[in-house]
Design a protein around this nucleic acid. Sequence first.
DNA 1: ACTGTCACCTGGTCGC
DNA 2: TGCGACCAGGTGACAG
Length: 293
Amino acid sequence: MPELPEVETVRRGLQPAMEGARIDRLELRRGDLRFPFQPDFAARLQGRVVTSLGRRAKYLLADLDSGDVLLMHLGMSGSFRVVSDGTNEMPGAFHHPRSDERAHDHVVFHMSSGPSVIYNDPRRFGFMKIFARSEAEQEPFIKDIGPEPLGNEFDAAMLAEACRNKKTSLKAALLDQTVVAGLGNIYVCEALFRSHLSPRRLAATLSTKKGEPTERATHLVDAIHDVLNLAIKAGGSSLRDHRQTSGELGYFQHSFQVYDREGEPCKTDGCSGIVKRFVQNGRSTFWCPKCQK
DNA sequence: ACTGTCACCTGGTCGC
DNA sequence: TGCGACCAGGTGACAG
């Protein structure tokens, strides 16, 4: 599921329940997600106040009053929901999980603010880890991640430079979290479509031989900005698992131009192309061969 | 050092 | 209705 817009949607949904609140009790319903929990995981969280809830790439980062940071990744199928207490869903939530869905409720944060925050993850590709803020720069999961695409430092010159010596495709380069943070399969496909660039194009062609960014790089950066901002505004994309913390679906999937549209007509004005799918680096790429060059 | 492939899991969908 | 094959939003560990 979760690429940058979905994780950002989740962060905004969790903020009211978590920021400034204390984790009275942490319930671990199994010993592992993708990895085993650290032996002192619960002990370092219980009784701590969440001073702020941030995001870096696809990671949620909760700052604690102890000087620790809780890192959380949703993998492919992770979601959070906020419930009024340990048993009842928030009034007004659209999503009331069936009992077999609750089987995948793996972590429960009982917050001093009243509600509980429940982490659900059927595939368990997600994970959580706690580390000291003073060692954040050495934290393996985040230390090599590239710039935030909606941050000030991400621009055409920066992206062109990061891709300059790459021997791989534009699609693979944009999925590489050390090039730019937070993009996944959906938003890479959508951004390439919006900038009319082929997913097969060599990433190095974003710059000239002298290293100057080409116009392509500018268009691509604009497209990345546009698609991410629109998706965040829509509460992310809900295909199978993603829900906002209230239980509502995101609705950006209705705005997909190419993703999951194999065989359907291209949406570019005046283009008579048909959206095609092929497998690139083991993942589905959707694109219009007629207008993406 | 870089790039591509596989593995980790569960569940939904499709064709027979 | 059942069964197997295949697919899925990510990324760390490998092999080349």
